[in-house]
Measured scan of single mutants.
Amino acid sequence: NQASVVANQLIPISTALTLVMMRSEVVTPVGIPAEDIPRLVSMTVNRAVPLGTTLMPDMVKGYA
């Protein structure tokens, strides 16, 4: 089972991601792979991401 990136807090729309905002967790459905966390830092989300939500590729500008 692959770990995915999960929001560690509410991430408001257009917020630049930082390490403290994300954690890795094995979830269903599978989202962005946890090993991509370093790549996600400073990318922005294009929607509000509630606490505990799995980050999907279409939620992060420039990721997909």
Score class of each variant (00 low, 15 high):
residue 51 L to S: 15
residue 8 N to G: 07
residue 43 M to A: 06
residue 56 M to G: 05
residue 27 V to Q: 05
residue 21 M to A: 05
residue 11 I to E: 00
residue 13 I to C: 15
residue 19 L to V: 07
residue 40 L to P: 00
residue 21 M to R: 00
residue 29 P to D: 05
residue 45 V to R: 00
residue 14 S to L: 10
residue 32 I to N: 00
residue 22 M to V: 06
residue 3 A to H: 12
residue 61 K to A: 13
residue 49 V to F: 03
residue 16 A to M: 12
residue 34 A to S: 13
residue 23 R to C: 05
residue 16 A to G: 07
residue 11 I to H: 02
residue 10 L to F: 14
residue 20 V to T: 15
residue 31 G to E: 02
residue 15 T to S: 13
residue 44 T to M: 13
residue 48 A to S: 15
residue 33 P to V: 07
residue 29 P to W: 04
residue 46 N to K: 12
residue 41 V to H: 01
residue 9 Q to S: 08
residue 4 S to T: 04
residue 2 Q to E: 15
residue 7 A to Q: 01
residue 2 Q to K: 08
residue 38 P to M: 13
residue 52 G to W: 04
residue 6 V to P: 01
residue 43 M to R: 07
residue 19 L to N: 05
residue 61 K to T: 14
residue 25 E to M: 10
residue 37 I to L: 13
residue 3 A to Q: 09
residue 51 L to T: 14
residue 31 G to I: 02
residue 4 S to W: 03
residue 18 T to C: 05
residue 6 V to N: 02
residue 64 A to Q: 14
residue 24 S to N: 05
residue 45 V to G: 01
residue 47 R to I: 09
residue 18 T to D: 05
residue 2 Q to F: 12
residue 55 L to I: 14
residue 39 R to L: 10
residue 58 D to H: 09
residue 22 M to Q: 00
residue 43 M to S: 06
residue 20 V to Y: 15
residue 35 E to C: 09
residue 22 M to D: 00
residue 55 L to D: 01
residue 4 S to F: 03
residue 20 V to F: 15
residue 52 G to D: 14
residue 58 D to R: 07
residue 53 T to G: 11
residue 45 V to K: 00
residue 7 A to L: 03
residue 15 T to G: 04
residue 12 P to W: 04
residue 51 L to W: 09
residue 50 P to I: 05
residue 44 T to A: 09
residue 46 N to P: 01
residue 2 Q to Y: 12
residue 48 A to R: 14
residue 47 R to M: 11
residue 11 I to V: 06
residue 7 A to W: 03
residue 5 V to R: 03
residue 55 L to H: 02
residue 8 N to W: 04
residue 16 A to K: 13
residue 24 S to Q: 13
residue 57 P to R: 09
residue 16 A to I: 10
residue 30 V to C: 07
residue 61 K to F: 11
residue 22 M to T: 00
residue 45 V to H: 00
residue 15 T to Q: 10
residue 56 M to C: 10
residue 64 A to D: 11
residue 20 V to S: 14
residue 43 M to Y: 14
residue 12 P to R: 07
residue 22 M to S: 01
residue 32 I to G: 02
residue 60 V to H: 02
residue 23 R to P: 01
residue 9 Q to F: 11
residue 42 S to C: 15
residue 55 L to E: 00
residue 54 T to K: 04
residue 6 V to Y: 02
residue 33 P to M: 07
residue 20 V to W: 14
residue 46 N to V: 11
residue 10 L to A: 13
residue 1 N to H: 12
residue 27 V to S: 05
residue 18 T to P: 00
residue 30 V to E: 15
residue 63 Y to W: 14
residue 58 D to T: 10
residue 1 N to D: 15
residue 15 T to V: 12
residue 28 T to E: 15
residue 48 A to P: 14
residue 36 D to I: 07
residue 15 T to I: 07
residue 19 L to M: 11
residue 18 T to M: 06
residue 12 P to A: 10
residue 2 Q to H: 11
residue 40 L to K: 00
residue 22 M to H: 00
residue 20 V to Q: 15
residue 30 V to Y: 11
residue 42 S to V: 03
residue 62 G to K: 06
residue 31 G to Q: 03
residue 7 A to P: 01
residue 35 E to D: 14
residue 59 M to R: 01
residue 1 N to Q: 15
residue 51 L to P: 10
residue 55 L to R: 02
residue 17 L to I: 08
residue 4 S to V: 01
residue 35 E to F: 09
residue 33 P to I: 09
residue 40 L to N: 00
residue 21 M to S: 04
residue 6 V to I: 12
residue 19 L to H: 07
residue 24 S to P: 12
residue 6 V to D: 00
residue 52 G to P: 01
residue 35 E to L: 12
residue 49 V to T: 04
residue 3 A to D: 06
residue 61 K to R: 13
residue 48 A to H: 14
residue 8 N to L: 05
residue 26 V to G: 05
residue 41 V to R: 05
residue 49 V to G: 01
residue 14 S to I: 04
residue 13 I to E: 15
residue 8 N to Q: 09
residue 10 L to P: 12
residue 14 S to N: 15
residue 20 V to N: 11
residue 11 I to N: 01
residue 13 I to N: 13
residue 46 N to C: 09
residue 46 N to Q: 09
residue 59 M to Y: 14
residue 44 T to L: 14
residue 32 I to K: 01
residue 31 G to M: 02
residue 32 I to R: 01
residue 51 L to V: 13
residue 45 V to D: 00
residue 45 V to Q: 01
residue 39 R to S: 11
residue 42 S to Y: 13
residue 3 A to V: 07
residue 46 N to H: 13
residue 39 R to P: 00
residue 17 L to P: 01
residue 42 S to F: 08
residue 28 T to N: 14
residue 49 V to S: 01
residue 21 M to P: 00
residue 21 M to E: 00
residue 55 L to G: 02
residue 17 L to Q: 00
residue 5 V to E: 01
residue 20 V to E: 10
residue 42 S to E: 09
residue 34 A to R: 05
residue 36 D to H: 13
residue 59 M to P: 01
residue 11 I to T: 01
residue 11 I to W: 02
residue 14 S to A: 14
residue 12 P to Y: 05
residue 48 A to E: 13
residue 16 A to D: 05
residue 51 L to E: 15
residue 40 L to R: 03
residue 6 V to A: 02
residue 20 V to K: 14
residue 37 I to N: 00
residue 29 P to S: 04
residue 47 R to C: 06
residue 50 P to C: 08
residue 20 V to D: 11
residue 9 Q to W: 07
residue 35 E to H: 12
residue 54 T to Y: 03
residue 61 K to G: 09
residue 14 S to R: 12
residue 32 I to A: 01
residue 10 L to C: 14
residue 45 V to C: 06
residue 37 I to Y: 02
residue 63 Y to V: 04
residue 25 E to R: 07
residue 53 T to R: 10
residue 40 L to Y: 02
residue 25 E to Y: 09
residue 34 A to C: 07
residue 24 S to V: 12
residue 3 A to C: 09
residue 28 T to A: 14
residue 53 T to Y: 13
residue 25 E to W: 06
residue 34 A to T: 12
residue 37 I to Q: 04
residue 41 V to C: 07
residue 43 M to L: 15
residue 41 V to I: 14
residue 50 P to A: 11
residue 42 S to A: 13
residue 18 T to F: 03
residue 5 V to K: 02
residue 12 P to M: 07
residue 1 N to K: 08
residue 30 V to G: 08
residue 15 T to P: 01
residue 31 G to H: 02
residue 14 S to H: 14
residue 16 A to V: 12
residue 37 I to R: 07
residue 42 S to L: 08
residue 11 I to L: 07
residue 11 I to K: 01
residue 45 V to I: 07
residue 55 L to S: 02
residue 57 P to D: 05
residue 56 M to V: 08
residue 12 P to T: 08
residue 43 M to D: 01
residue 33 P to A: 14
residue 22 M to C: 03
residue 33 P to F: 11
residue 2 Q to V: 12
residue 62 G to F: 09
residue 57 P to E: 07
residue 7 A to R: 01
residue 19 L to T: 07
residue 61 K to Q: 13
residue 59 M to I: 05
residue 38 P to C: 15
residue 27 V to I: 07
residue 30 V to S: 13
residue 37 I to E: 00
residue 27 V to M: 06
residue 29 P to M: 04
residue 56 M to R: 12
residue 64 A to C: 15
residue 47 R to S: 09
residue 41 V to L: 13
residue 4 S to A: 03
residue 15 T to F: 06
residue 45 V to F: 03
residue 63 Y to T: 03
residue 51 L to H: 14
residue 11 I to S: 02
residue 60 V to K: 01
residue 38 P to T: 12
residue 45 V to Y: 00
residue 33 P to R: 08
residue 22 M to P: 00
residue 13 I to W: 15
residue 44 T to Y: 14
residue 40 L to F: 02
residue 9 Q to G: 05
residue 14 S to F: 12
residue 6 V to E: 02
residue 36 D to Q: 12
residue 17 L to G: 00
